[in-house]
Amino acid sequence: MSDNEDKVATGEGEEKKQTITIRVKDQSGEETFFKVKPHTKMEKIFSAYAQRKGVPVTALRFLLDGTRIAADQTPKMLELEDQDQIDCALEQVGGW
């Protein structure tokens, strides 16, 4: 949190333009990169990724340190920094 506050303090003006790159790593280890603004909702990344992979976005789970990322969160809320990685897992279903 403190890192972020620092940023805000140092470069308020820059922040608007600034973009960060996020790595989405799937279960096979393949990485996909997304360039986003800190205030872009994560769902945009999710849907872009799902589209790219050709799977419905509901079948994917995006995890940051093992915790599900909500679609309406932003990189800033998640305190994501440049080159940070999020994991992508497939929905887990079980019955028998």
């Binding site: 915790t67 599900r68 679609a71 929905e91 279903v93 079980g94």
Partner: peptide, 25 residues
């Protein structure tokens, strides 16, 4: 207790019906 939230979609709700499989959500 833990941080964060769980978002339940209609797809998940349907899974609560009998004969449906539960998912991670």
């Amino acid at each position: 207790q833990a941080k964060g939230q769980v978002l339940l979609t209609y797809g998940d709700i349907i899974r609560l019906e009998e004969t449906q499989l539960f998912n991670d959500t």
